[in-house]
Structures are given as structure tokens and as C-alpha cells.
Design a protein around this nucleic acid. Structure first.
Lengths: 215, 215
DNA sequence: GTCTATAACCTGATAGAC
DNA sequence: GTCTATCAGGTTATAGAC
């Protein structure tokens, strides 16, 4: 089989694994389910990825990497143009994730649910993924926020960045439930609506007065 | 064996299951791990709980039920005394969860991580748990927030309640990571600090101006 | 590179003795 | 109520033919 078909096999495994991880979780998904869904042989997983653990890492980093590259590129544009405002920082942080989640949802599932589990999955591979794939982004946005919010202490910046991330993680993980909770009033797939609501809340939360005495 | 010892066996199973679910997740935890950890016989789980699924439900509802009873009792006090402010509503919502998570952490683990997975666990039993155990609470707090924030549309109230819940869920799930992200600056086990930071951010987020034209 | 076959082991659940 | 023994089926990973 030529190289094009190899890539096809690898990608078919990644696509099937992604779909099943999103629907049922990592532990609940067996390699047999993945390979039969991808219409490849069971042994192909170990040939291409060596182990289930490495497959898990590949599934996540395939989506996280371009998402975070987009975040950092946007942040750099903001910084060189000196047009940084809280809104533009939040947009640079939120939009790449929402684009990815909504852009891929026509696969017939919401990849957001899989991404939302990034912080809650106890699976060992996840913990190292957060550090290696998210550390740089968190560090850069913490700096950008600290610059945009000079009235806050460093501790407050970290707390508020944490909440700002939590809003996104929960929207990815449980956004579908919003439709139900609101009796159909909310459409969690309306990108502009999601972004506007998130940025409005986060901007106000981040801008709240400092609780600490001025230095 | 008398009734006191029965209760002891049942509780030992619940305690062990809770600990292991928190550490490794539901799917990754086998009944054999649970029973050997609890020092009871393997068959005892099926005798007392009928199935792993019912055990999972029992583990969660044992913690969720008193937590939500406390929430609703606090909210009722606020409403009868007509002292409802945004801060007191938020305190009534956040404090019972934080009390539970921090009160039980001396078991040698953070139960918060297990609670944080309530919204992200794909395990079937979880979805029905959210509806049955959290539906009533969400409905009541949505009403209380709508009354406290008359400038918002119903849709905005739901979005902002969703973000307010997300902040809590992410703090439960990933609070430990904050210590690392902040290079030790933040102590996520300081109850008053956690509450103060959460309420400050959420109060500002909820109070942000409406994005919709007045009716 | 891809396949079949299989090793070695773990899973939830239950029947039946005590 | 608690135990042992066992069922029927699942799991990852790999050896070896093609």
C-alpha cells in the first residue's frame, strides 16, 4: 500500500477514535470499536500508534495544536499593533476553540464534548497533555491579561483567567444541555451568539474591582 | 450480621467507590478494585446495589442530595426575608459545594474532582443524574437570578447562569491545577478566598449590561 | 503494511453452599 | 448476608503468515 493510503488509514483511525471518545469517553471506547468503525484491522492501531495511550494523545493534539497556534498568532498581532483591549484578548482566546468545535460538528457529533473533558478526564495521558499543549498558551494569556488589567494583583489575574477558561470548558462540555435547560430558547451552535455572551460575561468578570489594597 | 454492620459494609463500598471514581474515573474503576479496597467480598456490590450503574448513582447522590437541600433551604430563607441580593444568591449557590468538597478532602483526595466530572462524564448514568438531581436547583436559581437582574432577557439569564455554573464546575475539576499554574501563589483550599474570588467575578459577569434592546 | 490468530488477562454478574 | 467458584464475554497487545 502506498503512502497516501497509509495516511488514509491513520486518519480513518483518528477520525473514528475522535468520534467514539467524544460520544462515550476514552476508557469506555475499545480499540475494537475504533477499528471496526474505521473499517481497518485491529492490529493497525498498534502498528501506527504503538498503544492506545499514544492514540489518545494523537487524537487530542491533532485538534489542540492548530487551535493554540491560532490563539498565539492572534495575540501576537494584537501586541504588535498595540490595539490590545480586553475584548480582543478574549476573542483571541475563545474564538479558535469555538471555530473548531462548530466547524467540525457536521461530522455528526460535537467535538466540543471531547475538548470539554480535557480538564476532567482522569486518564493519565490527559494530565501531561494539558501541561505540554496548554501551558504556553495559559502563560501568554496570563501576561496579556495582567497588562490589560493593571489594577489586579497577580493572584487575582490567575483566579480570573481560571474562571475565564472554566466558562469555555463548561460551554464545550455542557453547551448542549443549555438548549434543554432554557427550553429551546438558546441555540448553542450560533457562533456569534456564543461568543457575544461569553465575552460580555468574562469582560465584566475580569474588570471587577480588585479586592486587595493598592500596593 | 446485624443492621449496623450492613450499613457499615454498604458505606465502606460507597467510600471506596467514591475515592476510586475520583482518582481514576468511573469506567476505569472495576468492582474488583472497589471491593478489595473496601475489604468486602466481590458479590457484596451486587447484593447491596444490584449493578455497577446503581452503585455509581448512589455514590453521586449521597453527596449531591444534602448539597442541594442546603442550597434550596438557603434560597428559601433569602426569599422569605426579602434580603435577596446577587451576592447572597451566589453564596447560596456556591458555598454548599465548596463546603462539601473542602470538608471531605481530608479523606486524602479531592471529591471535587469527582463532582467536576458530573457534567463531562459520558457515562449513561450521569446524564439522568443531572436531570433528576440538578434540574430543580437550576430552575429555582434561574428564577432567583431573573428577579435580581430585571434588566436581562430570559435568554441572557440562562446564558449567565450557565457560565456561573461553569466557573464552579471548573474550579471543582481543575482547582488543583491553579496552584501549579500560579506557581504556588494560589491556595485552592482556602474556602473564604475561593468564595470571594468566585463571587466577585460572577457578580460582575451577571451584572453586565444587557445586549438586547429594552422591550 | 496488512492480515489472522491467539496469548494473557480483566470485566460485570450470578448460582449455590454456608 | 457473606462467601467461593465460575460464566460468558470483553480487553490490549503481539507473533507470525502473507
Amino acid at each position: 500500500m502506498n503512502e497516501a493510503n497509509v495516511r488514509e488509514t491513520k486518519d480513518r483511525i483518528l477520525d473514528a477514535a475522535e468520534r467514539l471518545f467524544a460520544l462515550h469517553g476514552i476508557e469506555a471506547t475499545s480499540l475494537r470499536q475504533i477499528t471496526s468503525d474505521a473499517k481497518v484491522n485491529l492490529a493497525a492501531v498498534n502498528y501506527h500508534f504503538n498503544s492506545k495511550d499514544e492514540l489518545v494523545r494523537s487524537v487530542y493534539s491533532r485538534r489542540i495544536r492548530p487551535m493554540n497556534e491560532s490563539r498565539i498568532a492572534r495575540l501576537q498581532v494584537l501586541e504588535t499593533n498595540e490595539t490590545t483591549t480586553l475584548e480582543t484578548i478574549l476573542q483571541a482566546f475563545y474564538e479558535p476553540t469555538i471555530d473548531m468545535a462548530l466547524g467540525l460538528q457536521n461530522h455528526g457529533f460535537t467535538i466540543g464534548q471531547m475538548m470539554g473533558r480535557l480538564y476532567t478526564e482522569p486518564h493519565g495521558a490527559m494530565q501531561s497533555l494539558i501541561v505540554t499543549e496548554m501551558g504556553e498558551v495559559a502563560r501568554r494569556f496570563a501576561l496579556a491579561l495582567a497588562r490589560a488589567l493593571p489594577h489586579l494583583s497577580q493572584r487575582e489575574v490567575f483566579w480570573r483567567l481560571h474562571f475565564t477558561i472554566g466558562m469555555l470548558a463548561h460551554t464545550m462540555a455542557a453547551g448542549e444541555k443549555l438548549k434543554h435547560l432554557s427550553h429551546g430558547l438558546i441555540n448553542p451552535h450560533d457562533k456569534q451568539e456564543v461568543l457575544r455572551q461569553m465575552i460580555t460575561y468574562a469582560k465584566a468578570g475580569l474588570s471587577a474591582p480588585s479586592l486587595e489594597p493598592a500596593p
